[in-house]
Structure formats: structure tokens, C-alpha cells
Amino acid sequence: MKGFVRFLAAAALTVAGVTGALAQAKEWKEVRIGTEGAYPPYNNLNAKKELEGYEIDYANLLCEKMKVKCTWVVQDWDGIIPALLANKYDIIIAGMNATDERKKQVDFTAVYNKTPIWMVGPKATKGNEITPAALKGKAVGAQGSTIHANFLEKFYKDSNPRLYPTQEEANLDLINGRLDYIVADALALSDFLNGKGKDCCKLIAEVPRDAAIHGPGVAGAVRKSDTALKALFDKAIAETMADGSNKKLEDKWFKLAATN
């Protein structure tokens, strides 16, 4: 059993290694970007099945600066890192926080965005206490495979954590009244509070960042073998920080809900 699994893993690594080496040898003319397309306002598939959002505009701007041709691939969040390792695309730009846990699998570019993390609940919620003791026995929702899910698992063991395949489903269950709280980043939740969640829900409190779980901020993820690609992106990201073009895009897309 052990041998067989080792064999499979070794085979997968060899394939990834070979393709990785080939990719590294070439000069980057074309970059395939993987994103989720279900996390507005970062990245979202609109009704016309077109990608839109801050990260779509931002990555296209980076590509312009790097003078490479970029193509987009949409991939479910759960499989977004495995698909990168399986060479389905070259970089993940999908609102991914650069956490230590993920660093075991992938390398991160420079951080290009950092947003607060919020906890949102029904309008009837009293007070804004969100300590684990205060939320004991409460149903708290988050999207699975995210830092927010890990956060719940680490600190809110006595609550009733519910993990959903997408943020949309967690939002829907908060509207339906099955959840007492949801936790996600402020932008995704602002989008919700300005839209579908307008009538039902409100901001309860900002969640204090935990360095180990939440990481330093949102960054692109590349395969560990693609050091040249990482360097290319790092340089372009630094440029957009210096010339204010990142800020401009953030202002265009990010409209935080009024905090009471």
C-alpha cells in the first residue's frame, strides 16, 4: 500500500518536474493564469460568462507591463493548487492569501493586496462580541479550503463550523437563517452586504489577523520550480505599487460597505 502510494506520488512528481523544467527553460512569452471566477469583486464570471473583477484587470495590467500574452483558466477553488501543480496553468491569481501552509506546496509572488477580514451576521444580532467564548454553539459558515475555514477550525472548535464549496452558498445559508455568522474577507462580504444581503445582514466585527493562519496578504502562487516567472511578476507588482496603478484599480473595484 505504502509502496504503491509512493509510486503514484513519485510518478506525479516526475511528470510535474519534467514539465516544470521545460517551462523554466523557455522564455516567458505566454502565461496561463488560473482563477476561481466565483469570488467577486476579486474575480467573477458575469452573466455573459466573461471574467471580470479587480484581479482580472490587475493581472492583465501586469501582463501588459511584463509584455507577455496572458490567457485565463477558470478552476474550482478546491482544486486550484493541485491544478497548478498539474501544469494546467502557470500562476494562480485568485485572492489567495500567502499562508505558511500553502508555502509548503507553492511559491508566492510579492503581496499585491491586503484586505481586512470580517464577520457578518443577521441584523438582529446583539453586540459585536466575536470571541470563541461568545460564539460557543453558534453556527459559523465559511468557504471550505480557505484561510477562514482554517481560522474557524483553529479558534472556534466549540462553535459549529459549516464549510461550503463556494462563498455564495454560505451567503445564501446566512440569508436563509441557518447560520448565525459567516467569516470572509471584507471585500467579498461588502459585495454581499451591498447586494443580496442588504436586507438581512450586517457587519458584526472585524476579525483580528492571526499571522500563522492568515499570512501577510494576497499574492500570486507559482510552482516552486518557476523562479523566473516569480521574479517577472515580483518586478511588475513592485511597479504597479510604485506608480499607483494598483491603488487605482483597488479604488475602482473595492467599495467597502459602510461600517454602520
Binding site: D78, P82, E101, S145, R162
Partner: peptide, 19 residues
Amino acid sequence: TLFDLMGATRLAFARSFDL
């Protein structure tokens, strides 16, 4: 959101990325 056998497996995969 039920953590049945498949739910627990998905969680384990999400945390470890080990297929």
C-alpha cells in the same frame, strides 16, 4: 456542509493537498 466520510476527506485534502 456535512462532515460525512466524503466531507472529512475533502477537508483533509484541502488542508494537506495530498491526493
